[in-house]
Design a protein around this nucleic acid. Sequence first.
DNA 1: CATGAATGAGAATTCATTCAT
DNA 2: TATGAATGAATTCTCATTCAT
Lengths: 211, 211, 211, 211
Amino acid sequence: MPKRTFNRLDDDKKERVMRAAIGEFQAHGFEKAKIEVIAQNAGVAKGSIYQYFDDKKELFIYSVTWALEYFMKVIDRQTPLKDMDVYDYFLSGSRERFKLLKREPLLVAFSMDVVSGKYGSLAKEVNSELNRIGEEYELKLIANGRKRGTIRDDLDDKTLLLFFQGVTEKFTTEIMEKAEGFKYEPTEEQYCEMESLMRKMVSLLKQGMGR
Amino acid sequence: MPKRTFNRLDDDKKERVMRAAIGEFQAHGFEKAKIEVIAQNAGVAKGSIYQYFDDKKELFIYSVTWALEYFMKVIDRQTPLKDMDVYDYFLSGSRERFKLLKREPLLVAFSMDVVSGKYGSLAKEVNSELNRIGEEYELKLIANGRKRGTIRDDLDDKTLLLFFQGVTEKFTTEIMEKAEGFKYEPTEEQYCEMESLMRKMVSLLKQGMGR
Amino acid sequence: MPKRTFNRLDDDKKERVMRAAIGEFQAHGFEKAKIEVIAQNAGVAKGSIYQYFDDKKELFIYSVTWALEYFMKVIDRQTPLKDMDVYDYFLSGSRERFKLLKREPLLVAFSMDVVSGKYGSLAKEVNSELNRIGEEYELKLIANGRKRGTIRDDLDDKTLLLFFQGVTEKFTTEIMEKAEGFKYEPTEEQYCEMESLMRKMVSLLKQGMGR
Amino acid sequence: MPKRTFNRLDDDKKERVMRAAIGEFQAHGFEKAKIEVIAQNAGVAKGSIYQYFDDKKELFIYSVTWALEYFMKVIDRQTPLKDMDVYDYFLSGSRERFKLLKREPLLVAFSMDVVSGKYGSLAKEVNSELNRIGEEYELKLIANGRKRGTIRDDLDDKTLLLFFQGVTEKFTTEIMEKAEGFKYEPTEEQYCEMESLMRKMVSLLKQGMGR
DNA sequence: CATGAATGAGAATTCATTCAT
DNA sequence: TATGAATGAATTCTCATTCAT
């Protein structure tokens, strides 16, 4: 969706532009985000932004896409675990995911805002795609649970999904807020705290939707 | 926070102004909401809005307050049930709350957006007050549960609160979206569907955090 | 020039309105002076101002007139000295005039601004009248001096007038600024300081334009 | 104080903008001066003004600075006469200064208004700087006079300064008003009239503060 | 392609004046 | 007459987008 001038750019400049855009959108919202500021922070001229993207909206939409793809790449690399148990999912690899929160707080915060609907209709397309992918993944986890008989069978998938999403989103947000509070690389203690919270969450999930 | 001029207005005009403001903010977000449109929809002159409020921001903040107080009033009237069991809470009076969603879809949608953080820092003050009130209420429910021994005692209040909030917010949102889809007074069938969902949620809550 | 509704007012209210107006014009200039503030400070309704005066401009012009007349009254009462010597003028009654500065700093400051042309064309009529009166008085003083032979006769009246005005206005302004600095009734010391300055000024005037 | 954008402009445009601004401020005062009119007269877009200056106020303040600096430049070139006698000062180069008044009536009128305090607190900073510079210069002239013994020694500098300023400001204003009345290049007769007035003034100054 | 000055549509805000009570 | 809410014309200021260099 960006113009081909953007794609031809060297990776460093591309990344600078995207991070500057995401930072500005995240900080001030779509309306108050200024193209000029984005350009400055990216170290390019204001006019250049318009060589790369048709308009502000397109820049925003691509920012969402870019953030999404960034996570896809990183997460795929870290958790290629598709037929895992629902409950195990959160316990395995949690340190890696936690590190990620610390390493990319901006992208995380931005993505959270997108998912939470803060940008309204603007991010709709990308967001619905994102939701679809997430939901598919979660339904897969639920299906796995059903096969193994670790999930109660008096409730339909849709209800279980709501429950699962409600609980995990809430705890994830909590952890993210914690992560933002810490500075630098998390300490062992912080890891433990986070893992403890994860374990409590899994316990609640297990009791709630378990058989 | 509105000026004296606003408070002296007759109730009808006050309500017209607030509903026009909320409608506009809800529809277009704070930045794109136009004072002129709000004034028109309220049937007053643009300048009058500035006789009532210092500026757009204050009008917005008061809109949040107004919506909050509206619900306070209505809900207080409907559910004066402070030492209820956690699980009963959602089952009792659910039809009344459901009706409310249908009667005031605008206020509901607006409040949801405020709570979900869609307006960012603007609504922060009012919103944090709102959160505090909600949380207090929920902790009370949890405390009630602990006294009666209906809640597992291996988890701390904070964790239980996260679980409780996550689940109930998700299901509430789902119901609200359903309610928006229906037109006019809900049918018996719709009530049943909603109550069924509530029952499923309570079942998950009970299993998850119950003893 | 005010409407007859204003003239019918009791003296106290009239004075309150005029002082409120003068205070506001003096503080913020004509453009930024707010009718609302004037009304509030006068203790009347905004609408009432429009019962008294056609518009803001008229209120302003009458403010100038009112201040002028106030001084006429007071000064006439204090210095009915028409065929005085130029040089004596400033020495006689200077304490009374100094007291006046302290008693009515607002009116003094306002009048000074009017005379100095701060209100541009607005005060033109009143101001030119004021100038005419002042000039007439000063020319009279000069004529007196000529008769007595205390004034050099190699210069025309116009030049002498410029000289006289330049010197006296400057010293007057200086004294006025001093007066504003003091609080409450001037002390004996302050009187002396002021009289000393007057005497120096007269010495310069005398040497400059004297024979 | 203008933005970088303004400084990068070519000199012609800079001058056009400043003259348009000064003309508008001079004609209507700060409050009633319209940015739109300034832009039109400068031949630029309204928005451009805001690329150059933060707001109307800053544009005004820079207008004052610009006019001041203009005179500094021109006068420095014309009268590099720092240890001149007080009385000679006004006689030497008076034709050049008179020409200046005719050539730049706008700047002169504007500067006069600034100095006379017509813009109130707005120009305060720039104006106090301007006053300081002027006063310094005048005190220097007085000091020169003292050294040569051409100034009476029974009066302090402060008093002499007041006298000097009062007289010269009044005569200068008179001359300026005359200059405005003439059109085009002054005639020989006009020069003579002006020089005559200057000579009379010096005579009064000399007698007044001379030994 | 990069740059950054120019543009002007669009919105917020002000406040003198009117007018119904 | 007094009051103060209502009105809307008038102005400032913003910033996405264009375009000449």
